[in-house]
Write a protein that binds this DNA or RNA. Structure first.
Length: 572
RNA sequence: CGGGGCGUGGCUCAGCCUGGCUAGAGCGCUCGGUUCGGGACCGAGAGGUCGUGGGUUCAAAUCCCACCGCCCCGACCA
């Protein structure tokens, strides 16, 4: 394509409202423009790159499944059937048609896919199925952010598997795992596959595909030695042992005026926080509206942080919230800051596993301005052990004891073993080989197209601009004559342009009447992997220069060989 | 939703605190000329409801109130 006829609005300066590198560069390079918070237009370059990403996804998904295209506009009834009309709440864009009927824009498509399956699939012989689509999703996020990182409208490849049994689901899940690896490999991403928290979706297993980046919003825990990898929400680790001073004395209450926090208590007692026991109070709403809320006391080592996802899991997925000060006073007889496990009644006590075997700890006395020392779990009080703490960098790996690393990461894909929740609630049934009616088991799987672009931009850029992997760059090569007023240069450029196109390379021919510096800066900014530069001197000697964007290496080649040299780079 | 910031030509910003000449700069854009291997230079131009509405005032980009939009931190995130 001839640059002079294209719309590639590059910017010299960073847009004022961007902070993430990918956001700044995608706007500066003319890939995207913002329309509203979390809503972006793809311009020419952005669309070319998006289409390449989508094509890679499509090719790999076609190896394992069938492409559909579902509506984005859904009737409310479908979502009310599964209870997710309420569950998604304000995250869902809801609207009414002219007849006053409730509609919404799809946040995901389990309901629509399951609706198709239940009305068409009757027999186990029709299973398994893997259906996918590449389509727009709408989520009214409370806080869109970082350009294309978190959008309110975005393109997702989502797929759904239907299998007769768990073994079948394992196969479908595995196929997706492998397809996702091929997709992200082909897109040039470096990523980790991590065990993920299944969240309110339920389900037995889920994995996330994570690109480590400081711009990421998630945290993952990885072990460089045994390859353990998990989302921080889910990650487990060992703990370095703590030397307790053996104490055979009985618990002893002592005054601690105005000492509420762990830091204050450590300073007051002169003990390290790992000798203290942190008491956090939560309540579970009763299943029965007339019932009493259940008070929960979570106990952690003073220097540890509670992991809310793990607490939720320990409570069996029940809805919970931090206890209010009044509720704490009623249940413990003391203000927050002075509560503890001793002598409490009707309180469910959860101890983090790192407290197992510890002795002689200090914790709240359930009496204002007092704590209690010489407390030993299991001797002085009892409770259930659960993994509650948030892993931090340096914790010993639960598998190999080597130190773990916590990194921020961008979630580019997520695969879920869904189970039978949707099939069950929506009445999907098939007959098995014995003629019995059974409920198929489902999986759901997602890839965020913009996330791939964002992650690539975060991963591959420098101070001059983007340097996208070849597979997703908008062009293969830019062709840059430094001055088109010189007939020999123009002739050589036009000739090369034809040859490159003939060789099926995607070439961006910079035939603009711009000075060389402008052309070089723009070419660097938009991140095309190679540039062929035609300069007066070199062309007079029959040479052109091939410049590799990612390494900044330059090499002179003879003009007749330029195309084949470049082709070999792409093929080899 | 809580906290913070911002809103002035296409872009990046100054001006606002302390109200008052015709609202400025750089970049970009148009025309003419020179220039041409890393965002050139000279000359001449075009382009602005100062986010919106209301209020105070002789007078509002500037002060006050309300609203809207965008960004950041937090909460949230199948």
């Amino acid at each position: 394509m001839r640059w002079s006829q294209l719309f590639i609005p590059t910017l010299r300066e960073d847009p004022a409202d961007a902070t993430a590198a990918s956001h700044k560069l995608l706007v500066r390079a003319g890939y995207v423009r913002q329309l509203a918070a979390g809503v972006y237009s793809y311009l020419y370059l952005g669309q070319r790159t998006a289409l390449k990403i989508i094509q890679i996804i499509r090719e790999e998904m076609d190896r394992i499944g069938q492409e559909f295209y579902l509506p984005a506009l859904h009737p409310a009834e479908l979502w009310q059937e599964t209870g997710r009309w309420e569950q998604f709440g304000e995250t869902m864009f809801k609207l009414k048609d002219r007849g006053g009927r409730d509609l919404c824009l799809g946040v995901t498509h389990e309901e629509v896919m399951t609706d198709i399956a239940r009305s068409e699939i009757r027999s186990y012989r029709q299973l398994p199925q893997i259906w996918y689509q590449i389509q727009v999703k709408f989520r009214d996020e409370p806080r869109p952010k970082s350009g294309l990182m978190r959008l309110r409208q975005f393109i997702m490849k989502d797929s759904y598997s239907f299998d007769l049994d768990e073994a079948g689901l394992d196969v479908s899940y595995r196929k997706h795992h492998d397809a996702y690896c091929r997709i992200f490999d082909r897109c040039g991403l470096r990523y980790n596959v991590v065990e993920a928290h299944s969240g309110a979706m339920g389900g037995a297993m889920s994995h996330e595909f994570m690109v480590v980046s400081p711009a990421g919003e998630d945290f993952i825990v990885t072990c460089a030695y045994c390859l353990y990898a998990a989302n921080l929400e889910k990650a487990r680790a060992g703990v370095a042992p703590v030397e307790d001073v053996p104490g055979d004395r009985k618990p002893e209450v002592f005054p601690t005026p105005n000492v509420r926090t762990i830091d204050e208590l450590a300073a007051f007692t002169g003990l390290k926080p790992d000798r203290l026991m942190k008491s956090l109070a939560y309540v579970i709403a009763p299943a029965d509206p007339k019932g009493q809320p259940q008070m929960v006391l979570a106990l952690l080592r003073g220097d540890h942080q509670l992991n809310e996802a793990k607490l939720g899991e320990a409570l069996g997925g029940a809805a919970w919230r931090p206890a209010l000060a009044g509720e704490i006073r009623d249940a413990f007889g003391a203000e927050p800051g002075f509560i503890g496990p001793l002598g409490v009644r009707n309180v469910r006590i959860l101890l983090d596993t790192s407290l197992k075997g510890r002795t002689n700890l200090v914790t709240g006395a359930n009496r204002n301005d007092h704590h209690v020392r010489h407390v030993t779990p299991e001797e002085d009080f009892t409770g259930e052990y659960a993994d509650l703490r948030t892993v931090v960098s340096g914790d010993p790996c639960g598998q190999c004891r080597r130190p773990l690393t916590v990194s921020s990461a961008i979630e580019v894909g997520h695969i879920f073993k869904l189970g039978r929740r949707y099939a069950e609630s929506m009445g999907l049934r098939v007959l098995d080989a014995q003629g019995r009616e059974v409920i198929p088991i489902m999986g759901s799987y997602g890839i965020g197209v913009e996330r791939i672009l964002t992650a690539a931009a975060e991963l591959y850029h420098d101070e001059d601009g983007l340097r996208l992997p070849r597979a997703i760059a908008p062009f293969d090569v830019t062709l840059t004559p430094v001055n088109l007023d010189e007939p020999p240069l123009r002739a050589a450029a036009e000739q090369l342009y034809r040859e490159l196109e003939h060789a099926r390379l995607q070439v961006l021919y910079d035939d603009r009447d711009e000075r060389p510096g402008v052309k070089f800066k723009d070419a660097d900014l938009i991140g095309v992997p190679y540039r062929i530069t035609l300069g007066t001197q070199k062309v007079a000697q029959g040479l052109v220069e091939i410049f590799e964007r990612s390494t900044r290496r330059k090499a002179d080649v003879r003009i007749p060989e330029a195309v084949s040299v470049l082709r070999s780079r792409y093929c080899g």
